[in-house]
């Protein structure tokens, strides 16, 4: 069993068996990060380029650490979005990078589909580290990994995703991933943050968070971009937080063993209260740990074998 494509552009293109392979491979790699010598020689001589058109600390660092723990050479390129419009095109940037023979290009971009575009031009593997509001497959894989590790499996798990679904690539990838694995997914948020036709992706839609909590095995809170207030998606942080923030009061309505996830970075006191974020139910930091293992697995499965 191996991955069928040279690129990881989204959960959409993955089959259930491929997701299972990634998760089980990640389980092996998780052990590496617990060693005193956190490095294996597997990808010695391979080059990974992290091409980030959006600011990111967690994801970029996670990919970088993953590459380095595999002995690959990781190069980070951060491109300020402001210079993109003046500078060279994405296609030209991609072709120039390709000319330096990398094995894998990890790209984050504010435009949906940007990774797909460069994947068409590149022979090297492309990993989508988040494109616009489209997908963030490695995040969904680490979320699935975290839940699977805690609950033993994903089939039958009830996942509740709360927040700005319209602008969330994390939500889209998780809806696709969890439903592929046999979980049921409900998305919840104000109608202003609920995109047209989201239920066609296989989830149910609701706006009443409190009513949904008791039936959720996993509660995934999404980061609220505070600048969305200017677009009139919510009137005030106070009101958003009252309706859709997860605090101790709301948590009492949830199952006692419900798991709480958040892709980070968290807005304390907005979508999640400090006592919940730091509480025993929260897996937020566990997600970060698992992120490295999942990304090591992706590198291994995409560029660990013979080049096609």
């Amino acid at each position: 069993m191996k991955l069928k494509k040279k690129d990881l552009l989204g959960i959409e293109g993955l089959e259930k068996e491929e997701i299972e392979l990634i998760l089980s491979t990640a389980a092996s790699f998780k052990e590496v990060s617990t060693r005193e010598i956190k490095k294996v020689p597997t990808l010695r001589g391979k080059t990974v380029i992290n091409l980030f058109y959006e600011p990111s600390t967690r994801t970029r660092t996670s990919f970088e650490i993953a590459a380095k723990r595999m002995s690959a050479d990781a190069i980070n390129i951060s491109v300020a979005s402001s210079s993109v419009k003046k500078g060279e095109t994405l296609r030209d940037t991609a072709l120039n990078l390709e000319a330096m023979n990398p094995d894998c290009v990890v790209i984050r971009h504010s435009s949906s589909g940007a990774p797909h575009m460069i994947a068409r031009h590149l022979k090297s593997s492309v990993i989508n580290a988040g494109d616009g509001a489209h997908e963030h497959p490695s995040q969904a894989l680490l979320d699935m990994f975290t839940v699977k590790e805690r609950l033993g499996g994903l089939s039958g798990v009830r996942l509740l995703i709360v927040g700005d679904i319209a602008h969330s690539r994390v939500a889209r990838s998780n809806i696709l991933g969890f439903t592929k694995m046999g979980a049921s997914v409900t998305v919840c948020g104000p109608p202003t943050m609920m995109p047209e036709g989201i239920s066609a992706m296989g989830c149910s839609v609701s706006h009443d968070m409190e009513a949904l909590l008791k039936d959720a095995d996993v509660i995934m809170m999404l980061r609220v971009q505070l600048e969305r207030q200017k677009e009139a998606l919510f009137p005030s942080v106070r009101e958003y937080s009252r309706l859709y923030g997860l605090d101790a009061g709301k948590l009492r309505k949830a199952r006692k063993d419900a798991l709480i996830l958040h892709p980070g970075p968290i807005n304390r006191g907005v979508e999640i209260s400090p006592e919940v974020a730091d509480g025993p139910w929260s897996l937020i930091l566990e997600q970060v740990t698992n992120g490295v293992a999942v990304r090591m697995a992706l590198f291994y499965l995409l560029i660990g074998g013979v080049k096609e």
């Binding site: 959409e12 949906s112 589909g113 494109d131 616009g132 509001a133 489209h134 997908e135 319209a166 690539r169 889209r172 995109p195 047209e196 036709g197 989201i198 066609a200 992706m201």
Partner: peptide, 14 residues
């Protein structure tokens, strides 16, 4: 704007 734009994460024109 519709199910396809939502799936692709592209901004929709209503």
């Amino acid at each position: 704007e519709g199910a396809v734009s939502t799936r692709l994460g592209l901004k929709g024109i209503p």
